[in-house]
Simulated assay, not measured.
Amino acid sequence: MNYFSWLALLAGAAIGIQAGMNAQLGVLLKSPLLSAAVTFIVACCCVLIVVAITTRQLPSLTSVQSVPLHLWFSGAISAFGVASFYFLIPRMGVGPMMSFALTGQLLVAMLVSHFGWFDLPIKPISFSKCMGVLAMVAGIVLINRA
């Protein structure tokens, strides 16, 4: 595994820990939406600090204006996903929730890659990828078996 693979593994682990922590925050605050708001405020502050430290030049106004309108709304998708995690984890548990969430992520990621949406590299769906999805679904059935 290379550096990027390890970083991706750590990012996934961080999401698993963060989801459980913020779900508990939502339970204690009696609002998964408030928990999501707190999460995004803290995350925004952290990212702004890193941007301030590492960014040498901000994008030009022309660059900002050239961004397609739909890309500015990805935060709404994040808010839905994060708030859904915090709502569902206390009801389902972290393991089952993450197994379903990961399945949704991988299925959509395969479609995004297959069609090259958002100008990303095209990676066609293959037989081996389909077999991997079937193995993953079988794993989810086993993980969530009572």
Rank of each mutant, 00 (worst) to 15 (best):
G116F: 09
F85I: 08
S128P: 08
K129Q: 14
P96K: 03
V94I: 11
P121V: 07
P121A: 10
P90V: 02
T103S: 13
G93L: 00
F115G: 05
L88R: 00
V94N: 06
S78D: 02
C130L: 15
M98R: 05
L88H: 01
Q105A: 12
F118G: 13
M110W: 13
A101Q: 05
P121S: 10
S78M: 01
K129L: 15
V108F: 15
G104S: 04
S126E: 08
F100W: 13
V133E: 02
G139W: 02
G132Q: 11
S99E: 01
L88G: 01
F127H: 11
I122A: 09
H114N: 11
G93H: 00
Q105T: 12
W117Y: 15
Y86V: 10
P96L: 04
C130P: 01
I89R: 02
V94G: 06
I77C: 12
H114G: 06
S99I: 01
F100Y: 14
S113I: 01
K123S: 12
A138L: 13
T103W: 01
A138H: 01
L102R: 05
I125G: 07
F80N: 05
I122H: 10
M131D: 04
G139N: 07
G95T: 07
Y86C: 10
L107W: 02
I125Y: 09
M110K: 12
I122D: 11
L107C: 14
D119T: 13
A101Y: 04
S128Q: 13
G104P: 03
V82Y: 00
I89Y: 04
T103D: 02
D119G: 14
S113D: 15
V108C: 14
T103L: 15
V137D: 03
P121I: 06
L106R: 10
A79M: 10
V82K: 01
P90N: 03
F127R: 10
S99K: 03
F115L: 13
F85S: 09
F87C: 06
A135K: 00
I89C: 05
G116H: 08
L106N: 12
F115Y: 15
Y86W: 09
F85T: 07
G132E: 11
M131L: 15
M136Q: 01
A83D: 00
I89A: 04
P90E: 00
G104H: 02
P121K: 09
I125Q: 08
P121T: 08
V108Y: 11
V94A: 09
L88D: 00
V112I: 15
I125R: 06
T103A: 14
L88S: 02
G132H: 11
F85N: 06
A79Y: 08
Q105W: 05
S78W: 00
M136R: 02
S126T: 14
F127Q: 12
G116N: 11
L120G: 11
G104E: 00
G93F: 00
M92K: 10
A109R: 12
W117L: 15
A79S: 09
V82S: 05
A101W: 04
F127K: 09
G81S: 10
M98D: 04
V112H: 12
L120H: 09
G116T: 08
F87Y: 13
L88I: 07
A83Y: 00
L134P: 00
P124D: 08
P124N: 09
L134N: 02
G132K: 10
A83E: 00
M98T: 08
G93K: 01
M136D: 01
H114P: 03
C130F: 12
F80G: 07
L111S: 15
V112G: 13
A101I: 06
A79H: 07
